[in-house]
Design a protein around this nucleic acid. Structure first.
Length: 519
RNA sequence: GCCAGGGUAGCUCAGUCGGUUAGAGCACAGGUUUCAUAAACCUGGGGUCGCGAGUUCAAAUCUCGCUCCUGGUACCA
């Protein structure tokens, strides 16, 4: 059986989740569900990044007795949000877990044994108030914006990773015919960055005095492993590197690292270089997606427009959020989340499009056939069109073009509604033309069956509802493209279950969603 | 500054190797219909394709200049 391993970025646990985090997890979930549909053995990993001085400071500021107690709470908020949004991850990794610590240290050892780690001096601008190094661009009038005083020039001894040694192999990897970084613009950008002679070795540790909340360097506890070696290795910890040989051999290398466009460089340069150094296979694809704005504006605490995914899921239901985010936005570009647009789109597509179609068919079957599917044949032309739309859907899904894939499904929905309008089965049935009227209804049911399957990665709850009303007893999530369940016609005698509206229209809500409390 | 990408209907965008009256969805207007969630179906209006010049029988599509926007630009989750 073919496998598929998809990861998301692990989220930094210094604050609760917002809609931006959710966007990426839903995308990964849609991909995971779709890949399961294609019959692959899927492993889907997400989690939280829990080390670093920012977490430590946030914990103290929030009055926690320890950073660990703080991240316990924060990570549980992420887990809860993903549960509400029907995210089907197979594991949830936390970088503070023991299993991860071992892997990070092992990767460090391997890179060191390879001669790729050396001690050097890290020089930077250190702010005593922040207890951290600042960047030139962080400064306002030469001062730390948080503490209103100039940072000190400071140096410390760090371990460095010999990135420069891997520039050529990285270039070769990035230019392989099988593209490893998408979208293509990002790949070109990364190649440019690699060509920049100023891209040099980078430090992978901090001294214990400037960073305490982290994983110690093996055999040198005065040094703590700094962000990238700690965070990126989650992808191999999560599939059992050094702990579960079977999972590891099955799933690594990753088929897809799904990340925000801002961290493309770290995934397309640092991470593959680290893997080369550790003698591990490289991921097949890194995909940097766009960001989501809220009502046309960048999300920020000061604007008060940071949306809580749990609140949204409770208010509008998970399907509506999932559907709108990916039907209305282009995944590789920035997109927007607006409640008014979501309500309009979801009502039009899910309630009046799919839901109403189901309702029309189910009602007529109930009235004229006592809810039992009559024995009729389906026109070959309709079935051919169904296959054509399905093929189109798959092509777009394979390229992560979700909005276009969804449009392919709605080709079928529109055809279904047109079929009813043109053939007017209610008239045929009143005139006693049961054969002809029944044929129209079963044709529409066949379309609905396909719609439910194809749409299920995007709106799982709605599609389970359609599946149920069509009278299937199986779990829709067990359907795969190759199975007979996928292609079989709906059998005569199947009893439908008319349970009323499968997707209730949403109301326009005018009050502002509760912003995420600041940890 | 440098590098990359982009400016096409009110909005979001398609437009393959340059070739007939520049397309889709949403929104808007009119009509048909009643099985259905006052839903559905049909028809229609609307664009000097950022600005200027050039190449060509022919340019949204190629070249140059200008202008505006976005992203990247040595360790930032």
């Amino acid at each position: 059986m073919e496998k598929y391993y998809v990861t998301t970025a692990i989220d930094y646990a210094n604050a609760p989740p917002h809609i931006g985090h959710a966007y990426e997890k839903i995308a990964a979930d849609i991909i995971a569900r779709y890949q399961r549909l294609t019959g692959k053995k899927v492993f889907f990993l997400t989690g939280t990044d829990e080390h670093g001085s920012k977490v430590e400071k946030a914990a103290l500021a929030a009055g926690f007795e320890s950073p660990l107690a703080f991240v316990d709470e924060t990570s549980s908020k992420f887990k809860e949000a993903w549960r509400r949004l029907l995210i089907s991850n197979d594991d949830f990794i936390r970088t503070t877990e023991e299993r991860h610590k071992k892997v990070v240290q092992e990767v460090f050892r391997r890179m060191r044994a390879k001669g790729d780690v050396y001690k050097g001096k890290y020089a930077g601008l250190y702010c005593d108030g922040c207890e951290d190094y600042l960047r030139e661009t962080d400064l306002v009038d030469g001062k730390c914006p948080n503490h209103q005083r100039p940072p000190q020039h400071s140096e410390e001894e760090n371990y460095f990773f010999r990135l420069t040694k891997y520039k050529e192999p990285l270039r070769a990897w990035l230019q392989e015919a099988e593209c490893h970084v998408k979208p293509d613009g990002r790949r070109r950008e990364v190649i440019n960055q690699l060509d920049d002679p100023e891209l040099g070795d980078f430090s992978i540790t901090r001294s214990r005095k400037s960073l305490t909340w982290g994983i110690p360097v093996p055999d040198d506890p005065d040094h703590v492993i700094y962000v990238w070696v700690d965070a990126l290795t989650n992808y191999i910890t999560g599939v059992g590197f050094q702990s579960d040989e079977e999972a590891w051999n099955t799933f690594w290398p990753a088929d897809l690292h799904l990340i925000g466009k801002d961290i493309t460089k770290f995934h397309a340069i640092y991470w593959p270089a680290m893997l080369m150094s550790a003698d591990l296979p490289l991921p097949k694809l890194v995909f940097g997606h766009g960001f989501i704005t809220v009502e046309g504006q960048k999300m920020s605490k000061s604007l008060g427009n940071v949306l809580d995914p749990v609140y949204l899921a409770e208010t509008y239901g998970p399907d509506a959020i999932r559907y709108f985010l990916f039907a209305a936005n282009t995944f590789d570009q920035d997109g927007d989340f607006s409640r008014a647009d979501m309500v309009a789109t979801v009502n039009k597509h899910l309630a009046m499009g799919v839901g109403n179609l189901l309702n029309r068919v189910v009602k007529l079957l109930d009235t004229h056939f006592e809810g039992t599917v009559p024995a009729v044949s389906i026109e070959q032309g309709v079935l051919d069109a169904l296959e054509k739309d399905t093929a189109e859907f798959r092509t777009f899904m394979d390229e992560f073009e979700f909005a276009k894939a969804i449009r392919s499904i709605f080709e079928i929905v529109d055809k279904g509604n047109k079929l009813l309008s043109e053939r007017e089965p209610w008239k045929l049935l009143k005139e006693g033309k049961l054969e002809e009227g029944g044929q129209v209804l079963v044709t529409a049911m066949t379309m609905l069956k396909r719609i439910a399957i194809l749409l299920s990665p995007i709106t799982p709850r709605l599609c389970a509802g359609i599946w149920d009303q069509l009278g299937f007893d199986s779990n829709i999530e067990s359907v795969i493209f190759r199975s007979s369940e996928f292609t079989d016609p709906i059998l005569a005698g199947q009893k439908i279950r008319n349970k009323g509206r499968v997707f209730e229209k949403l109301d326009e809500l005018t009050e502002n969603p509760a912003p995420v409390p600041t940890a």
